[in-house]
Design a binder for these strands. Structure first.
Length: 335
DNA sequence: TCTGGGGTCCTAGGACCC
DNA sequence: TCTGGGGTCCTAGGACCC
């Protein structure tokens, strides 16, 4: 018996949920994002595999997606529907009796002691399919990092194992941003240091990277390069540290009085949604055109809306506003 | 008419205190 | 004219992820 981490990831989850309730869409290029109008500001949340063949992908502006695939079916994001299906999936995973750590709507880690992790993984996938009609892929690793990356090799609807024994064979020559936790910015900075592969990152001097990235992040990056990381699956229910709302306007706002009204409106909404938790701080976010983001916050004293307005007062009303956000940080948040 | 909306975690700098 | 050292807390911003 060996301790394994499994990473279960639903295939094209959001698009798959939409197809489930609209069977006529099966096999068609489906794009879910924004309010479903590809002429508006917004990005793609998920594209079906058929839509991906046209070069449509997550994070892409909807208008770009429409350009690439004018005949795609565009649908609005329906968070309530995905939450409901997600809960079903997670319940199936928990029914295995093993610890489950939820990562988002469509993915979770499962910890398991077994001599045959592939068989266990296929069993989980079959249970999910039987209960929800959804396909998933399962990555197997000695820790969360390995399991998470393994899933990418298993898609779609497959199972893949990645361990320390196969780490360099699979990832050694790939760029550092193939690793979960390393994005474009860090990859570019690493490239500036002459580190362009996972193997080079693994061989880098932790002290040198500490000088470049900070005392925690530097050595941690080297460990990522070596495929090492946390192997403990934490089944503790998720408790949010903060909750917020933000809105991008279809047309930039120039009238600062209107900015104040929108912030007050967002503040009332957030206050309503967090009424069960003590709030320590209220943070306002302003994205000025074209895309400069600034945040200011205040400790909560008095009314929530007053706090939001006090935070807003720290901004300069000197340019058009593209986005406004209000976020509550909880007083009882761990960490 | 490029660039959403929901989050988490880490870093750096200044305030503040002894 | 010169003005330590350490620790903690608060704040804003950056990077990343789904």
């Amino acid at each position: 018996m060996t301790r394994w981490v499994l990473h279960v990831d639903l295939d094209q989850f959001i698009a798959a949920v939409e197809v489930l309730r609209r069977p006529e869409l099966r096999g068609k290029p489906v794009v879910v994002g924004g309010d479903g109008d590809p002429g508006k500001r917004g990005v793609v949340s998920t594209a079906s595999y058929e839509a991906r063949e046209f070069g449509v992908h997550s994070g892409q502006p909807l208008r770009t997606a429409r350009k690439r695939c004018p005949d795609c079916v565009f649908l609005p994001v329906d968070a309530a529907a995905y939450n409901a299906v997600s809960a079903e999936v997670m319940a199936v995973l928990r029914d295995s009796g093993e610890p489950v750590e939820v990562l988002g709507w469509d993915e979770a880690f499962v910890g398991v002691d077994t001599g045959d992790p592939e068989a266990f993984a296929r069993g989980l996938a079959a249970d999910v399919k039987a209960a929800t009609s959804l396909d998933c892929s399962v990555g197997i690793g000695e820790n969360k990092l390995q399991a998470k990356i393994a899933t990418g090799y298993g898609k779609p609807a497959g199972v893949f194992r990645l361990t320390s024994a196969t780490w360099y064979e699979l990832l050694g020559d790939r760029p550092p941003d193939a690793i979960w936790g390393i994005g474009a910015k860090t990859a570019a900075k690493l490239a500036g240091l002459g580190i362009t592969t996972v193997r080079q990152l693994a061989d880098a001097d932790p002290d040198r990277l500490a000088a470049e990235f900070g005392p925690m992040t530097g050595p941690w990056l080297v460990l990522l390069g070596r495929g090492r990381g946390d192997g403990e699956v934490d089944p503790t229910p998720y408790v949010a540290r903060s909750h917020g709302r933000e809105v991008t306007f279809q047309r930039n706002i120039r009238d600062w009085a209107r900015v104040g009204e929108e912030v007050a409106r967002l503040a009332r909404q957030v206050e309503d949604e967090v009424s069960e938790r003590p709030v320590a701080r209220v943070v306002v976010k302003v994205r000025y055109a074209p895309f400069l983001t600034v945040t200011h916050g205040v400790a909560l004293a008095g009314s929530f809306e007053e706090a939001a307005r006090a935070a807003l007062a720290q901004f300069t009303p000197d340019r058009p506003v593209r986005l406004l956000g209000v976020r509550a940080e909880f007083a009882d948040a761990a960490g």
